[in-house]
């Protein structure tokens, strides 16, 4: 099934290149046109900047998820992981303030601990999946619950808040711009480019696709399957920690409601982008478009009162399904015969 899909894609690359790979781009373009028609303020510079910045969290996490899903895994824990890493970062920075003050050192300590936590949490997911031989769905369902309740516990059921002295130092990481683009957008762009190179231009990327297509064949082809799979979860953890590093300075707080549903949004972004849910084929470029599409839907719904607030979920669901249908469905009957 997977093999034929890959073969089919390769065969028809000349003919169908446009529709298959341009699907998410076309969907995003259509959404933007609808947004502009509903309210011209949609296309204002401020709104576009907001949109891109907002997409950064889900986008960065989704780049990591592309690797996990391409290699045939799934990670449901990313939203809870983001929440608990944000929470622990805040606790560490608040404690470091007494020794290092509210300056750059404290912020760097916070960011460093975030990266260590992200790598560690990702490794745990990977280790349990590969060496523990537990399905990724179950492992990450478990860690999802653990991380979510840990952040609730650390916050005593309430909200963890970053000390105001540190907030002053850290705030620019979210709010400042560099060459006209907000810093989170730069981080998103750099992560995307690195992710694209890793998936499409390295042996590691090819191994991910090979494992996702057929794990047994990859193993007989001398691919260290366990190591590669574990690495995909570590990359996912790193992406989550990068997302929290730009998330925390936004409001300087973390609570049990931080990152709720991010895992599903990240998975949706990956699939909208053209990556196959059962693995074997991944597209970073599509993932980025997928993240932008998801954020744009929410943005457009806030820009109009044509649709009842209660139907927001319906609109989101419809657009996700249509965006995937655009790339999967056979529009030309001739394809069936070739």
């Amino acid at each position: 099934m997977d093999d034929s899909l890959v073969k089919n894609t390769a065969q028809n690359r000349m003919m169908k290149f446009d529709i298959k790979t341009m699907g998410p781009a076309i969907a995003l373009l259509l959404l933007c046109i609808i947004g502009y028609l509903l309210n011209p303020a949609f296309a204002s510079e401020g709104n576009i900047t907001n949109l891109l910045t907002r997409s950064a969290f889900i986008g960065i996490i989704a780049v990591g998820a592309t690797f996990v899903i391409t290699a045939g895994g799934i990670d449901l824990s990313v939203g809870s992981m983001a929440a608990v890493i944000s929470g622990v970062m805040i606790i560490i920075m608040n404690n470091a303030m007494s020794t290092f003050g509210g300056g750059v050192t404290t912020v760097l300590i916070g960011c460093g601990s975030s990266i260590i936590l992200g790598l560690g949490a990702g490794w745990i997911n990977g280790f349990l999946t590969t060496k523990g031989k537990i399905e990724a769905f179950i492992v990450t369902l478990g860690t999802m619950g653990i991380y979510r309740s840990l952040v609730t516990y650390f916050a005593d059921g309430g909200t963890l808040s970053l000390d105001f002295a540190i907030r002053g130092t850290y705030r620019p990481v979210y709010y400042d711009s560099f060459f006209g683009l907000p810093i989170p957008v730069w981080v998103f762009a750099i992560v995307s480019v690195l992710g694209w190179m890793l998936l499409n231009r390295t042996a590691f990327g090819r191994y991910c696709m090979a494992i996702g297509s057929n794990e047994a064949v990859a193993k007989y082809s001398a691919v260290n399957v366990d190591r590669i799979k574990t690495l995909t979860y570590v990359i996912q953890g790193l992406c989550v920690s990068l997302a929290t590093i730009i998330y925390v300075p936004r409001l300087g707080s973390a609570s049990a409601s931080t990152g709720v549903m991010w895992e599903l949004e990240a998975i949706a972004a990956v699939i909208i982008g053209g990556t196959v849910l059962k693995g074997g084929y991944g597209r970073i470029g599509g993932t980025i478009l997928g993240a932008l599409i998801l954020t744009t839907i929410g943005n457009i719904l806030n820009f109009t009162d044509l649709i009842s607030n209660y139907l927001n979920g319906t609109m989101q669901g419809l657009i996700i399904i249509i965006a995937v249908w655009l790339q999967r469905a056979d529009f030309r009957s001739s394809n069936k015969t070739t």
């Binding site: 309210n39 401020g46 907001n50 907002r54 409601s257 931080t258 943005n299 806030n302 009162d305 927001n312």
Partner: peptide, 23 residues
């Protein structure tokens, strides 16, 4: 002018208000 759900949470409050300000 309009009302939108921000789900009693800070992140949604931030994003919905950003959109109201653009709009």
């Amino acid at each position: 002018l309009d009302d939108k759900h921000a789900n009693w949470n800070r992140d949604d409050g931030f994003e919905v208000m950003q959109d109201f300000l653009s709009r």
